[in-house]
């Protein structure tokens, strides 16, 4: 973030563009947009230093509604475009807003490689488990058997899970939250913004039109306590409406236990800084309805960023060889002179 003392503080409203927001009523994107604007204001971000890059899909309209620099690009390519932006100007704060189809279907390759490079991009994946903009086909995160216009007998594709993909791709920061849990969304976004390197945030997002209530189990006041577990660094995995349940490892397998019978000391203690991503991956494999699904920061470790390494090599070469001079470049290799009278 590029906070500056001599510039006026901005409010969330200052990050709102003059464009009319055209998402459907009830769409989870509205909430995320507002939380992003609030977080940027709270962090003292500068509009001119901030770039939002998106691909194609409902969520990819996001940049139009931000009063920052923005690039609404082509399907699946936002991470690659954002990579070019960050390489050309590493001082910019570059955010990528994408969806489950954009990031994991047509753009799957770019997500994988962007993450492994640990380039300083903040990636928000709004996962509604459906194709909204093309009017309701199943997506790569749709559950097996999902009935849609393109799968009237039920989808025969097995879904993939964004957090698992991120961890498998050597992510340095990955978190998950739910659109309507505004405080938690803000918390996760703040953490992502502060991270050096690629930050990947999956947000469970409601599509009111084509996949309404897909995450009701995680948002309904009545059920969510039993269906989600909040990850906190250094704390045991405790959940339940009455916070009476926990997760421990039984051999290699996470197991739900009753805290009346098991001590909190025996539960999994969350370590987001663990060098080995195995436990983070195991947590990512805890899926509803067998398990409460973890929300929060799965993994937050430090690694040199791509842009640091890129610019570091340039600086090292300049220190070693001096800034490039064309005269010298032109004359490197075997050269020879031809004098006025012919060859010398």
């Amino acid at each position: 973030m590029s906070a500056s003392a001599d510039k006026p503080e901005l409010t969330a409203k200052d990050f709102r563009s003059d464009q009319q927001v055209k998402w459907c009523p009830g769409c989870g994107d509205h909430s995320v947009l507002v939380q992003v604007q609030k977080v940027l204001a709270a962090l003292g971000a500068r509009r001119e230093q901030t770039v939002f890059v998106s691909g194609i899909g409902c969520s990819s309209r996001f940049p139009y509604y931000m009063a920052t620099y923005g690039f609404h690009s082509i399907h699946g390519r936002a991470p690659a475009i954002a990579t070019g932006v960050k390489c050309a100007n590493p001082d910019l704060d570059v955010w990528v807003v994408t969806g489950d189809g954009d990031a994991l279907s047509i753009g799957g390759n770019h997500i994988l490689h962007t993450i492994r490079r640990n380039i300083g991009l903040k990636i928000i994946l709004l996962n509604n488990r459906i194709y909204g903009l093309t009017k309701g086909q199943y997506s790569p995160t749709s559950e097996f058997g999902t009935r849609t216009k393109s799968s009237p007998m039920g989808s025969i594709d097995h879904p993939i899970h964004p957090v698992s993909i991120a961890i498998g791709s050597e992510i340095t920061f990955v978190a998950r939250t739910v659109d309507v849990d505004v405080q938690h969304v803000q918390y996760v976004l703040r953490r992502a913004a502060a991270h050096k390197g690629t930050a990947f945030v999956e947000i469970y997002q409601n599509c009111q039109v084509y996949n309404a209530n897909a995450y009701g189990w995680a948002t309904d006041r009545e059920t969510k306590g039993d269906n989600v577990v909040y990850l906190e660094h250094g704390k045991p995995l405790i959940f339940g409406k009455d916070r009476d349940k926990g997760i421990r490892l039984n051999g290699d397998v996470p197991e739900i236990v009753n805290l009346n019978q098991v001590s909190p000391d025996d539960l999994i203690i969350h370590d987001e800084k663990a060098a080995d991503p195995s436990m983070a991956f195991r947590l990512a494999r805890m899926l509803h309805p067998e398990y409460p699904e973890p929300l929060g920061v799965f993994r937050a470790v430090e690694k040199p960023t791509y842009e640091e390494l890129l610019m570091g090599q340039i600086e090292a070469e300049r220190a070693k060889r001096g800034p490039g001079r064309l005269e010298k470049l032109f004359r490197s290799g075997d050269i020879w002179e031809v004098a006025e009278t012919g060859a010398a």
Binding site: A80, T83, C87, A88, N109, L112
Partner: peptide
């Protein structure tokens, strides 16, 4: 010279668009 060996031809071109946007 900022060389980016991309994951594929598409990413290479997309990154070029991004780098142009940011002024390289």
């Amino acid at each position: 010279v900022r060389v980016f060996q991309a994951e594929d031809e598409i990413a290479a071109m997309a990154a070029v668009v991004g780098a142009a946007y940011a002024g390289a």
